[in-house]
Design a protein around this nucleic acid. Structure first.
Lengths: 122, 122
DNA sequence: CAGCATCCATAGGGATACTG
DNA sequence: CAGTATCCCTATGGATGCTG
């Protein structure tokens, strides 16, 4: 390492924690699902295919605690709750989306394929 | 989702797999450790603090299978093995590093802090 | 609708010991 | 040096059922 990211290698660096939240299986997908704007619980549940109530709940709570996602509950009946990225969350996603899009574009070539050439990008 | 990343939400989309490898706890750190160039097993082991032999081995094998990391063994004694990013891996990291750096810069403000303001970036 | 609580299975991952 | 093999444990996370 040329030191720019040295901190990430220390086990108790806060970045490790954030990284684990943000880069987790469901964390990424939930964040991506919110990049388009506010979404309700049910929408997220449907959008992020395969996620369970439990995982959606805990993922959202973690991201909220990290200050990346904001939760707004409306005192109505039936209940309505909306989730949105905070300014922090949006900054994060600005940097995450290019990565996501590259992965999406190249995933097919990678899985199993091994030595495929990158789809002329960059 | 405005559809650009729609594929990521389907459970059996290849991107899910790649994402899980690349965004995994040790996957990111190993990849980051390789962004400076070729590194030997021992160097990675020491550099990525906290990783075990087992995890380093399996992480490297996974990334190699994904075509992101290249393994070169030299038929010497004592053995020497070097790992490096493939062109694919480098493209990936070009998009990963900005994210990493942002996380490193903002992690302190996030963990626990919750609603901290982003460090004027973007 | 939006969740939290509970139970439970699996696999992620650590520690240790051994090998080419 | 660069791994592999084994044991074992905990935390992740799925399924189900209940509540405000």
């Amino acid at each position: 390492m040329r030191a720019e990211s040295a901190g990430a290698f220390e086990p108790n660096c806060p970045s490790r924690t954030v990284l684990d939240h943000v880069m987790s299986k469901w964390g990424v997908l939930v964040l991506v699902a919110l990049t388009d704007g506010t979404a309700r619980w049910g929408a997220l549940r449907r959008n992020v295919e395969g996620i369970s109530d439990k995982m959606l709940a805990s993922t959202l709570r973690t991201l909220e605690a990290d200050g990346l996602v904001e939760r707004t509950a409306y005192p109505e009946v039936p209940p309505r709750v909306e989730y949105a990225l905070t300014p922090m969350g949006e900054q994060l996603m600005e940097r995450m989306m290019p990565l996501m899009q590259w992965v999406l574009a190249n995933a097919d070539a990678m899985v199993g394929a091994g030595r495929a050439q990158p789809a002329s990008a960059s």
